[in-house]
Design a protein around this nucleic acid. Structure first.
Lengths: 250, 250
DNA sequence: CGCTTTATGTCGTAC
DNA sequence: GTACGACGTAAAGCG
């Protein structure tokens, strides 16, 4: 039996089913009218309403309202959850250590209590990150321009890390800043800081912002600063080669 | 009847219940073995496993694994979801416009399908954000130091917004950067950028980072740059006065 | 609507 | 274990 379900359970039934689910390391799913108090890095109070409560076998605890992607209250993996009855009311508690945080949910009326012995071995395969863009450019430098040669990746400078450092066909230094999404002003500022560090030493340093698109403000600032933009889409292949390094090409 | 539930439903039963729930703007909750494909800003594929699927009345769509707080796949509010049967299999689809994104979930076996006509009018009351810290400092400037007078809030400069601008008892300009959590190197860099903009014009500008704590590296950088740190905890009162402005004190 | 910043961000990863 | 940066960040606030 993968699943155990109880509709409109009594307080005691609900309590037993929830504790049973937690002990069996099941995915516990509750639909109930509840209120919640949280105290930890911040502090919050949520008055009564009908919500979805989830307790995961890894210790994750969530209270979801009927809106938004994010839970309204939650605790992260490794938190310790339990149910208890106090003065005739059913409570759920989830405690995290370091930082010390506590979430308490009072269940006023449970409409559905269930748990699910879920087996799930697969992880998400995803493509389209900044890192994948870097891999792609290292493997196909001509995407930047003909004659471009990458020299270093994640190159450390005072103000941070340069995504890709390279040279153009004339031997001028090129600083590549990658963004996998639309680039904003902050990306231009970041690139400018890197370029400024090098321009102090020598002239003829080129700064290139690489992204699938750019905001209007960012484009203006880029032109003012004498920097360049290359429109490149992040790669879409799932399971792209991880760990592409410059060694492959030196 | 707040709740409608079906255990181990047939494909057709599951389909009907899910479509019914979506149409009634209920919170739809499914426990099922499924796989998922996403294509939009990025691209992803998730192979079969037993998971929790939630469709909210605001259009939010989530697939939760048995671990982590974040959903493994999701669509934001206002997405359009539907169920359909194709070649004898049950699918869920959620589509978002702008950016165009599509999430498709194939349900291999439904263990529990339910929907919940949830009423929830209350919003979370929370305390302890950066904004509350700002309010507190405007109301009690001596928290920064004796003689400190705030002059402007969210003051716009080229590189962003200065949280609080003020003067010390000698009339020197003070730039206050607030962080409600432990401050890291990035907070110091941000403060430094603001201070640099003003130091170009005049000397004697002080930069103060205000946070409950600070990382070691950040503290070192702060001292190198001649900036200051004030250890202040964000306030914990729920429902603190919103909309405190400088007008109250000028 | 687009842009910017915050967050109990969460999560991975290098040190 | 701590610190740092990326994220399909999501969500709020402002022009």
């Amino acid at each position: 039996m993968k699943c155990k379900v109880s509709e409109n359970p009594s307080i005691k039934e609900a309590y037993r089913l929830i504790e049973d689910g937690i002990r069996k390391r099941a995915l516990v799913v509750i639909l109930a009218c509840c209120s919640a108090s949280y105290e930890g890095r911040a502090r919050s109070r949520l008055d009564a309403g009908e919500r979805l409560i989830v307790i995961k076998p890894d210790g994750t605890f969530m209270v979801h309202q009927d809106r938004k992607v994010d839970p309204v209250n939650w605790q992260p993996p490794k938190s310790r959850s339990r149910a208890y009855i106090k003065r005739g009311s059913l409570y759920l508690e989830s405690i995290r250590r370091d930082p010390e945080e506590r979430l308490e949910v009072e269940i006023h009326e449970a409409h559905l209590v269930s748990y699910y012995l879920a087996r799930d071995v697969h992880d998400l395969m995803v493509a389209g990150h900044e890192n994948d863009m870097g891999d792609m450019i290292i493997m196909h430098p001509q995407l930047i321009e003909k004659g471009f040669r990458p020299v270093a990746r994640e190159y450390a400078v005072a103000s941070g890390f340069i995504d890709i450092l390279g040279k153009d066909e004339n031997g001028s230094l090129m600083i590549i800043e990658l963004k996998s999404r639309k680039a904003g002003v902050s990306a231009v500022k970041q690139l400018k800081r890197y370029v400024d560090e090098f321009r102090e030493d020598r002239v003829g340093v080129r700064g290139v912002l690489v992204a699938p698109s750019i905001t209007h403000d960012a484009m203006e600032m880029l032109e003012e600063e004498g920097l360049e933009f290359r429109e490149i889409e992040p790669p879409r292949e799932l399971r792209s080669n991880r760990g592409v390094t410059l060694d492959n090409f030196l």
